[in-house]
Design a protein around this nucleic acid. Structure first.
Lengths: 221, 221
DNA sequence: TGAGGGCGTCAGGAAGGCGTCAAGACCCGT
DNA sequence: ACGGGTCTTGACGCCTTCCTGACGCCCTCA
């Protein structure tokens, strides 16, 4: 597995790097948030080990930006055991949270667990002339690339991740807009409308993005 | 989400049960490993919160046996912060590991994270040409999707959750329409009629949605 | 045999949800 | 500071869903 290790502590970077390599992984290194995001875009690692205590933009911010366009598994490291930060990181989409000090074997176990979960996903989904490539964050319709905004993508991804399953309005708002947006369903209407206009042959008669009145939406392959 | 809570500590069971319920989950309870495995087979919860310190067969053993046939997400609780046990639990297929003491908000966040990752395992009920997929909120009849309104779905879900068992009118009204609707049975007649029209081959001679006069209704697989 | 209660059906009106559009606020990179 | 793209917000018309009352049927029991 190709793992991106993001940490500002030189010693820890070295130690973890050796340990991960010894466990058979390919290790990429980044020392700050900016280069981490760059490495993520360019090298597309299979998993990220992210220390929250970064000097420049901060680990939480890296996580937030990363989740805007990628679903790569992220294991967070932190010196602080505060519950609030854990909750924040997990809700931002971290797959796991490890508090220092920790053993190398524990970290490896959590990496195995996170990687195992990620492997079960269906990466590319085809529905008619639509091709939705989740890892590459790319959608094509009849061979032509469709441009989506981050929010549109977040919404589509949520629906496509579980094809055929109904996703409640509450779930969609919670995941795409954040935990605070519990009741405002106008966002959903507007953005589902936008997606239909871009993805459906007849936006007025959708075949993939189906409304279930009073409940939520569903992606039909 | 339907969550099975496995813990031998009565106080903790009560506290967590209340917290989970307040967060909108349905909570099933088991006090030891044996009844936990039984509940897992019979009730098929969407997620399991498992305390490792059980009196009889032990949490680790429950996890091992469970993973032999199910992929339901499991969040492990433990008083011990030993790295070895963490590694063991995670490698056995636990989705997360929470060390006591922990806050309710952290547990809820980890449950959200674990539940979000799940989705591939589904309890599906088949009855003739009917397929009722509870998590996906989807019903098909002879392969064709059947559209249900929220109320129709709530009613069907109530009946299907305990196949073959009689569900009283009072219970149905209470769960689907709310605690205030104790006596008005006309809703039931109307909506059962609607469901039969959509799901039965001969709505006049129902084979699945059976009336028990004076008592309630029953779903017959 | 007649009365009564429970059940199934139907169709209308009221209420709320949904799709759409456009204008303004906001954020980003240049 | 500027411009382009993105997100938010409100208003409006349409459609689905829900509630409600009336009616006929069947079964039970006197």
């Amino acid at each position: 597995m190709r793992i991106l290790l993001v940490d500002d502590d030189t010693t820890l970077r070295r130690t973890l790097g050796i340990g991960l390599h010894a466990a058979g992984h390919d290790v990429l290194i980044a020392a700050d948030g900016r280069s981490a995001l760059q490495a993520l875009r360019e090298d597309k690692p299979d998993l990220v080990v992210l220390d929250l205590g970064l000097p420049d933009i901060g680990g939480v911010e890296v996580l937030r930006r990363l989740r805007a366009w990628s679903t790569v598994p992220v294991v967070v490291l932190s010196a602080r055991a505060e519950s609030g930060e854990k909750v924040l990181a997990l809700d931002l989409g971290a797959d796991d949270y490890v508090t220092k000090p920790f053993g190398m074997d524990e970290l490896l176990a959590r990496i195995r667990a996170a990687g195992r979960r990620a492997g079960s996903d269906v990466p590319v989904l085809e529905a008619g002339d639509l091709v939705i490539d989740l890892p590459a964050r790319r959608v094509t319709k009849g061979g032509a690339v469709v441009r989506l905004t981050p929010t549109e993508w977040g919404l589509l991804e949520m629906l496509v991740r579980t094809p055929g399953r109904l996703v409640s309005q509450r779930e969609l708002l919670h995941e795409v807009w954040g935990p605070a947006y519990g009741r405002e369903t106008n966002y959903l209407r507007v953005y589902v409308g936008g997606l239909r206009k871009k993805l459906e042959d007849e936006p007025a008669r959708p075949r993939h993005l189906i409304t279930e009145p009073g409940m939520g939406y569903r992606f039909e392959p």
